[in-house]
Amino acid sequence: MKKFRFAEQLRGAALSVSNNIAEGSGSNSAADFKRFLNYAHRSIFENANILLVLNLRLLVSDKDLADLLEDLDILARMISSFSKSLK
């Protein structure tokens, strides 16, 4: 049962990243879009935290954790760069 709750939390946090980007893309201003990009960026850190907890509980291997954290870091940098490019 615990594994299912963790999986649901991770799915929700992951979906939050793309949902916030999608919602922000419908904004009427760059400032509003940036706000949603910030929410997406913060959701990446939520994903990282969930993965760290899963690793501590031995549900995610060290190698998988490192790979996933690297992917999240790349995504966070992409969102930050995109946000900075908006005027």
Rank of each mutant, 00 (worst) to 15 (best):
M1D: 11
M1W: 15
K2Q: 12
K2C: 13
K3A: 02
K3G: 00
F4C: 04
F4D: 11
F6R: 14
A7C: 05
E8L: 10
Q9F: 00
Q9C: 01
L10M: 06
G12H: 02
G12C: 11
A13S: 08
A13Y: 04
L15F: 12
V17A: 00
V17I: 13
S18M: 12
N19K: 11
N19I: 10
N19V: 10
N19D: 08
N20I: 06
I21R: 10
A22R: 12
E23I: 04
E23R: 02
G24T: 10
S25H: 15
S25A: 13
S25N: 14
S25I: 11
G26L: 08
N28H: 12
S29C: 12
S29D: 14
S29L: 15
D32K: 07
F33C: 04
R35G: 12
F36Y: 10
F36K: 01
L37K: 08
Y39V: 03
A40W: 05
H41F: 14
R42I: 07
S43Q: 01
I44N: 05
I44V: 15
F45L: 09
F45G: 00
F45R: 09
E46L: 12
E46I: 09
E46H: 07
N47F: 00
N49T: 15
I50W: 00
I50Q: 05
L51C: 13
L52S: 05
L52D: 08
L54I: 03
N55P: 13
L56H: 10
R57V: 07
R57K: 12
L58Q: 09
L58N: 05
L58Y: 06
L58T: 08
L59V: 07
L59Q: 03
L59Y: 11
L59A: 03
L59T: 03
V60T: 01
V60I: 09
V60K: 02
S61G: 01
S61R: 09
S61N: 04
D62K: 15
K63H: 07
K63T: 08
K63Y: 12
D64Y: 04
L65T: 07
A66K: 15
A66P: 11
D67P: 02
D67L: 11
L69R: 14
E70L: 15
D71R: 07
D71T: 07
D71G: 05
L72H: 11
I74D: 06
I74P: 02
I74F: 14
L75W: 05
A76W: 06
A76C: 01
R77Q: 13
M78L: 15
I79W: 03
S80A: 15
S83Q: 11
S83W: 01
S83N: 10
S83P: 05
K84W: 00
K84C: 01
K84R: 02
S85F: 01
S85A: 07
L86F: 04
